[in-house]
């Protein structure tokens, strides 16, 4: 076993099928590389082949009647500057992106990379989760579509099999009176820092009543998770300070963070309450509530 990152091949397939064929032929020892900003930091030892996707044209943001589709190879800088993503509730993607790493990294890092590296602390998945995003996965058998929350299986683990890779993220259209918010806590809010915890929320109102609520959080479990309890508390209610607080506390109750060098589990749990509360207040404010 090599003790050093030294893949022997670099391939640039021309279409989806060829990509899957290469990936499958290396039986798990091939790795897709997009921006490279994650791969070259971790330099995994179990890689024989790097597969670059630049010829697949996965770099796009499309705005349609059914919502928004974003190619997996879209750089983060395009997301943060995207007109299509400047409106409620999509704009939380721009906001989450602006809080992610640095402008220099965002010039090359991609949305697919951010999702597929499946770190518990990544920023875009919670935002995408409250936007009910689905990811499109391509493999030898064709493509499949799954909700983003189901994409993650554990720390650095996804549902992708050896031949599969992500090609697109799909976000549905939302009714008016929908507001969302993304909150991220870093060490004294220093730039580049990954989240101690992050949280996203989306509220869709019918009149003054919450018709639909989504709350997601990151860095509190092996994968980003929804707070189902918070959603239940909010649904069908007219928001007030007390309900927001109860929902935030419920989310904190569902968080199962760990102690690590960046923060203690106890601090993270307390911060989930603060961030979810802020995310809900901001979501409501954004629909004029």
């Amino acid at each position: 076993m090599r003790n050093i990152f030294r893949p022997s091949e670099f391939r640039r397939p021309k279409d989806l099928h060829e990509t899957s064929w290469i990936l499958s032929s290396f039986e798990g020892r091939a790795r897709v590389v997009a921006g490279g900003t994650e791969l070259l930091v971790h330099k995994p030892l179990d890689v024989d082949c790097l597969v670059g996707l630049s010829k697949l044209d996965l770099d796009y943001i499309r705005n349609g009647r059914a919502g928004i589709t974003i190619g997996a190879g879209t750089t983060l800088v395009k997301i943060e500057e995207s007109e299509a993503l400047s409106v409620e509730p999509y704009r939380i993607l721009r906001e989450a992106t602006r809080l992610l790493a640095t402008p220099t990294i965002r010039n090359t890092a991609t949305i697919g990379g951010n999702i597929c590296n499946a770190s518990p602390a990544v920023d875009l998945p919670p935002a995408l989760m409250v936007l009910d995003a689905k990811v499109i996965i391509s493999g030898l058998e064709g493509t499949r579509e799954i909700p983003i929350a189901d994409f993650f299986e554990g720390v650095k683990k996804t549902v992708l099999s050896d031949d599969e890779f992500m090609v697109e993220v799909k976000i549905p259209a939302f009714p008016e009176n929908t507001g969302a918010s993304f909150q991220k806590l870093r060490h004294h809010q220093t730039s580049i820092d990954i989240a101690i915890v992050n949280a996203a929320a989306r509220l869709s109102f019918a009149g003054d009543t919450v018709k639909e609520a989504k709350v997601a959080m990151g860095s509190v479990a092996a994968t980003p998770i929804y707070s189902k309890k918070a959603e239940e508390i909010l649904k069908g209610k007219i928001l007030d300070v007390d309900i927001v607080k109860r929902a935030a506390e419920a989310a904190s109750g569902e968080a199962k963070p760990i102690d690590d060098i960046r923060a203690s589990a106890g601090y993270r749990k307390r911060m989930v309450t603060v961030l979810v509360e802020r995310a809900l207040e901001e979501s409501a404010r954004r629909c004029g509530k």
Partner: peptide
């Protein structure tokens, strides 16, 4: 790289073809 600031330590040269 094509006018954008990038980190050359995190850029595979193969991808700069």
């Amino acid at each position: 790289l094509n006018g954008k600031a990038v980190l050359s330590c995190l850029t595979l040269v193969a991808q700069t073809d």
